[in-house]
């Protein structure tokens, strides 16, 4: 084995490694370009210390709402140690926009069995859009440590299909957790 042979094999491996990087980069670019998938990144600020007096995240304004244009928005406050509201009905096969924020510490938002996932950082409104393609219940646990009650901080997302999806006259939909 000459030094030349070694050098050539190294170059070949260097090329293979570079090719590997290229493939990975291409997968990332193509997947985000073709499917327009982006991580939740809307950089929208909000004062966390006055959240309890904020009009958008007022208690009566939280939960699922059908907007005048037919789209659905869910507003959620993640706080120590609960999501408000704790039961969230959403329609199947329609785009749902989640807007979540925290008045106190960092929380996490994850709808198990879906790709809805974001950090909830005080000072920012985390926003994400998703479509649920099958009816059923999903657990929505807090996924970042927020204090001693963290493990008990979860909500339930109920994906409802046509007949079960019944928002009231004002466009609000709500559900109750089984006790």
């Amino acid at each position: 084995m000459s030094e030349e042979t070694i050098r050539r094999s190294e170059l070949m491996w260097g090329a293979i490694a570079a090719f590997g990087v290229g493939i990975m980069a291409a997968v990332i670019v193509v997947s985000s370009f073709a499917m327009a998938i982006h991580p939740p990144s809307n950089v929208e600020t909000i004062d966390p210390t006055t959240l309890n007096t904020n009009s958008e995240f007022a208690e009566s304004n939280l939960g699922t709402r059908v907007n005048p244009d037919g789209s659905v928005t869910v507003r959620i406050v993640a706080t120590q140690f609960e999501f408000l509201p704790r039961c969230i009905p959403v329609p199947k096969d329609r785009q749902v926009t989640f807007r979540v924020t925290s008045p106190d510490v960092i929380h996490g938002f994850l709808i198990a069995g879906s790709n809805a996932n974001t950090m909830v950082v005080p000072g920012y409104v985390a926003q994400l859009r998703t479509v649920f393609s099958s009816a059923g219940d999903h657990l929505m646990p807090c996924h970042e440590f927020c204090g001693l009650g963290h493990s008990e901080m979860w909500a339930l997302v109920k994906v409802l299909d046509g007949a079960e999806w019944k928002p009231d006259a004002s466009g609000k939909a709500s559900c109750e957790l089984p006790r």
Partner: peptide, 23 residues
């Protein structure tokens, strides 16, 4: 991450808050 407008639909609520104390 520079937002030109608050493009999101903001629903105003006139309910009194549970408490007006802010931390």
């Amino acid at each position: 991450g520079i937002r030109k407008d608050g493009s999101t639909v903001t629903k105003k609520s006139s309910d009194p808050p549970a408490s007006s104390v802010t931390w």
